[in-house]
Computed example of a mutant assay.
Amino acid sequence: MRASALTPDYAPLPFGRVPDSTDPGARISIPSDAIAQFDAVLHELNPDAPRVDQARLQALAGWLMRLSPQEAHDVLELRLTRIEQLRALLVDPDWDADAAMRARLGKLLSYFDRAEDLIADSTPALGLLDDVLMFELAWPVFEAEAVEYGDFCDYRASEHPGGDAPAQRAAWLNDRLAELALLRHHARVHDSHYADVHVPDTTFRVVW
């Protein structure tokens, strides 16, 4: 399927760097049991995610605090927008995510909806950092579904397929498969054009 607006197109958060003990930006302190709960939720969603600990959170918070206000806003807003797009995926009656995907999305969104989570949303500058971190580290589990849903939304908006939800999804899938078949056909024609070139054995004589 085609890439969509749901696919993150920005640099990843610099999560994982151990902070310098002299780093003046690393000013966050969170109870270890709260971090353990955050990490447990994350790994229920994405077992392959990196572990979250105090040192890494300090480093990430320090990095965010050193950005300009506009840069920090953009870092958060880009990811918060993606979160709302995932919410749209879950509630769209025309989309048919399976039960397991819906359950994972529900768990992810329920974390975002807590006012008092790892970092309280009311915390100045850093209140939404844990939300965007959860989104980013859990994203690989949702990426394929999100890309397909985004492409379906693009198709629905541009082609206006008729019928009920299954008919719209079938039209989208059939058209995309037809596009893929056409691309493969063109690739075969292109390859055969070069593969079938025959170099004659006859020696040519130039006549002046």
Rank of each mutant, 00 (worst) to 15 (best):
L128F: 14
K107C: 14
T123F: 09
K107P: 03
A100G: 13
A120K: 07
R102D: 06
M134I: 05
A97S: 06
D96L: 07
A120H: 10
D98R: 05
A138L: 03
A138R: 07
A115R: 15
F135N: 00
R102P: 05
L109S: 08
W95K: 04
P124T: 06
D131V: 01
A115Y: 14
K107G: 04
L128V: 07
L109A: 13
A120C: 01
E136D: 07
R104G: 10
K107D: 08
A97Y: 03
L105R: 07
R104M: 14
A125H: 14
S122D: 12
F135D: 01
A138N: 08
V132I: 14
R114A: 07
L133F: 01
A99G: 11
W95F: 08
L137A: 01
Y111M: 09
W95G: 06
D113P: 15
D96M: 14
A100N: 13
L128Y: 11
D98S: 05
D117H: 11
M134P: 00
L129A: 06
G106M: 12
D96C: 11
E136C: 03
D117R: 10
W95L: 12
L118E: 04
G106Q: 12
F112G: 02
D130L: 00
D117A: 13
F112D: 11
A120P: 08
W139Y: 15
D98V: 04
D131M: 01
A103P: 07
G127S: 02
D96G: 12
A125R: 15
G106E: 12
F112S: 03
D130K: 01
L129Q: 01
P124F: 09
S110D: 15
D130E: 01
D121T: 14
S110E: 14
A97V: 06
L108F: 10
A99F: 09
A115T: 12
S110G: 14
W95R: 03
A99Q: 14
G127T: 00
F112K: 12
L105W: 04
F112P: 04
D130R: 05
D113L: 15
A99T: 07
F135I: 03
A138Y: 06
D113A: 15
V132C: 04
D98H: 06
F112L: 09
R114Y: 07
I119K: 00
T123Y: 07
V132E: 01
V132Q: 05
F112C: 12
